[in-house]
Simulated scan of single mutants.
Amino acid sequence: MTAKNHSTVTEFILAGLTHQQELQLPLFILFSVIYIASVVGNLGLILLIVLSSHLHTPMYYLISNLSFIDLCHSSVITPRMPISFLSETNTISYPECMIQLCFFHIFAIAECHMLAAMAYDRYVAICSPLLYNVIMSYQVCSLLVMGLYFLGIISSTIHTGFMQRLLFCKANVVNHYFCDLFPLLSLSCSSTYINEILILCFSAFNILVPTLSILSSYIFIINSILHIPSTEGRYKAFTTCTSHIVAVILSYGSAMFVYLQPSSVNSMDQGKVSSVFYTNILPMLNPLTYSLRNKDVKIALIKTLEKRRFP
Rank of each mutant, 00 (worst) to 15 (best):
A3Q: 10
N5D: 15
V9R: 03
T10R: 12
G16H: 04
H19L: 09
F31I: 13
F31H: 12
F31G: 07
I34K: 11
Y35K: 07
V40W: 04
L48R: 00
V50P: 03
L51P: 00
S52G: 01
L55V: 02
L62T: 02
L62W: 04
I63T: 00
I69Q: 12
C72P: 07
H73C: 06
I77S: 05
M81P: 11
P82Y: 05
S84V: 04
L86C: 06
S87Y: 14
N90F: 05
S93P: 02
Y94V: 06
P95F: 08
C97I: 09
M98Q: 09
H105A: 09
L115K: 00
R122S: 06
V124G: 03
A125V: 09
M136D: 07
C141E: 06
S142Q: 12
L144V: 03
G147S: 08
F150A: 04
I154V: 13
S155R: 05
S155L: 05
L166I: 08
L166D: 09
A171C: 14
N172T: 08
C179D: 02
P183R: 04
L184C: 03
T192Q: 02
I194N: 08
E196W: 01
L198R: 00
I199F: 11
I199P: 05
F202I: 04
L208M: 14
T211R: 08
S216G: 13
Y218A: 02
I222T: 14
I225N: 13
L226I: 10
K236V: 08
T239W: 09
T240A: 09
C241P: 12
H244S: 09
I245C: 14
V246G: 04
A255T: 12
V258P: 07
Q261Y: 12
V265D: 05
Q270W: 15
Y278H: 14
T279S: 08
R293Q: 11
N294S: 01
K298Y: 10
A300H: 03
E306T: 08
R309Q: 07
